[in-house]
Amino acid sequence: MNMSHLPLLQQGIAVLAALVLFTSFALLAQTRLTSAIHSFAWQGAGVALVTALVAYSSHTSHLYLSAALTLGLKSLLIPWMLHRLVRQLNMERLVENIAHPAVLLLTGAALVIFSYWVSLPIEKLGLGDTRNIVAISLSVVLLGLWMMVSRRQVIAQVLGFMSMENGLFLAAVASTRGMPLVVELGVAFDVLVAAVLFGIFFFHISESIESLDVDRLNRLSEREEHS
């Protein structure tokens, strides 16, 4: 597929989607929490911009609303909440130690290739650029998942979780011009409630184990049952 054959708007969408993928990698390897939150905010802004472009190119007016919602929620409100929490918990200067950054990023790259492989059948439908977008959004989802698995800080896990949501939203917008408005409002509501609950949990966890390191959340393992 040759990019230059696509209309300008489509090219713009593809470039922005690639930028969203880039922020995913930035999130994955970012050791400073505050910078990771910034990367997440940029990712939200990228998704919102893609949504606005899709709305403009397909003349779907309700997508403008979704774009505004995403911008407000994912790139302003949630990052602001996380920032405040980090300040309250005195973790601004915290730098997380990543054991093998190269392995982390290479696995991420492998996940992107895997996503392209999974979305091969969609290419056969002959819908031009859709496959690229589906593959990129699946990559963002899987990279978020990988971040949750590999990072040890609770806040990093939450960022991974939220960036998974970004990937899902991108998939919905780019491949189907957005879900119906009711569903999108419902999903946004769930994300908002989840963000609030995460905040509540930070305090509970830091009270109960005096740290936000998930390695210390190990009271309930099966191995303990033996001892």
Binding site: F161, L168, A171, S175, M179, F201, I205, L217
Partner: peptide, 23 residues
């Protein structure tokens, strides 16, 4: 709290994959 955190994260991830399937 640990149990609830695990429940939240694992089900959250699972349900996110379900949303991808729905899309």
């Amino acid at each position: 709290i640990e149990a609830a955190w695990k429940y939240f994260i694992l089900c959250g991830v699972g349900i996110a994959l379900a949303l991808f399937g729905t899309v």
